[in-house]
Design a binder for these strands. Structure first.
Lengths: 202, 202
DNA sequence: CCCTTATCTGAACAATGTATAGATTTTAGA
DNA sequence: TCTAAAATCTATACATTGTTCAGATAAGGG
């Protein structure tokens, strides 16, 4: 059984994944607003209309690319988190900070990806397979907050208030900075402010 | 002196403001991503190329529309704020809540406007005339926080942490809800969480 | 009244998403 | 293995878009 069929004169062999990976490449470079179906097809060496056998339109190709990016973000976050070991209060605090930082860093590194993920193309409720609470980035947050509580760093009564708050602060600040509506150097202070308000003292 | 010149066969009379208001109308209806220069011109009854005498391209027309919207948002906020009078602690608390609510309500009422305002077309730092700190919505926030402090509702030490925090929470939550990435009924809880974390008790 | 300047039109161009008909290859059944 | 059906891809076409540019039309100043 051939893992990847060879490119024939006529049949590509694995056009669907080629479409996604090429769309990913061009989105990374030029942003999803400027992604051209024809350029994707041309880059692969296939006619424009060939794409319509795998995606009904440009939007659903962008959706396929976008939804796959949540795992890339989570991978980056977990790679950063793994650098901090131990179950002390300090380790839990460091992980919380790392989580907020990695979200921001990844978005700054891949602004076009970040924009696509939170665009109209990647609506969670449109696809029941994707729910925010079940997404790995959000699960990383809840786990991190639980660790803060169990190490006595975060007040138990604050726990229920901290989840959506942290999520919206980190996402809101990141989003504003990536889009150019907030100075980039303000991010550290915002994380400081958040920890201060949550009662996580240094 | 004629306030508004009458439309001639050939010369429109006040094409620049007609362009802005028509672009505003179509953006409100279809979103800025779908704003067509040609449709704007057609709606006014002018040729497509006429627009290029007032705006070098589609982007700068969108920018003109977008920047004007910050005042509309502020107008709405201040209209809501004006309903709450007095300088008691309760009044200050109510105004803070009203400020967060009005931001959200306006965005939900005009999602396409909200998206345009925080798009790449309306970058504050691109135009030195527009700075976030000087924008009326942000000034409403700082004033409101100062009132909370002066009525003893917000701890003085928390004041410096509350500004960017409130801003990013309210904007982040609003942005996520408007774009469909967060359930709409989560907003009230987020404001509750914010007040709790800031130490503003009921 | 003429001539300069501002304003607008008409036609054109390249790029885009997408639909449809038909060509080519693969695959399954006899 | 042969053949018919299904899967896959191409060619062509169409409407729409932003934008450019040469030229037409009107307004205003001397």
């Amino acid at each position: 059984m051939p893992l990847a069929k060879v490119r024939n004169q006529y049949h590509h062999g694995d056009l669907e994944s080629a479409l996604i990976s090429t769309a990913r490449k061009l989105t990374k470079r030029n942003g999803f607003e400027n992604l051209s179906l024809r350029k994707v097809a041309e880059d692969i060496g296939v006619s424009p209309s060939a794409t319509y056998h795998y995606f009904p339109d440009r939007d659903s190709l962008l959706a396929a690319v976008g939804f796959s990016l949540f795992d890339e973000l989570a991978d980056y976050q977990e790679h950063q988190l793994a650098k901090i070991t131990g179950s002390t209060a300090k380790a839990a605090k460091d992980r919380f900070r790392s989580l907020g930082n990695s979200y921001f860093e990844w978005a700054v590194k891949e602004p076009h990806f970040f924009n696509l993920m939170f665009s109209e193309y990647c609506l969670m409720d449109a696809d029941p397979d994707h729910k925010r609470e079940d997404s790995r980035p959000y699960m990383n947050l809840t786990k991190c907050l639980d660790e803060l509580v169990s190490t006595g760093t975060l007040d138990e009564r604050m726990r229920e208030h901290s989840e959506l708050l942290s999520w919206t602060v980190v996402h809101g600040a990141t989003s504003l900075i990536v889009s150019g509506h907030l100075e980039s150097d303000g991010y550290k202070k915002i994380l400081d402010d958040l920890e201060y308000a949550l009662g996580i003292r240094k």
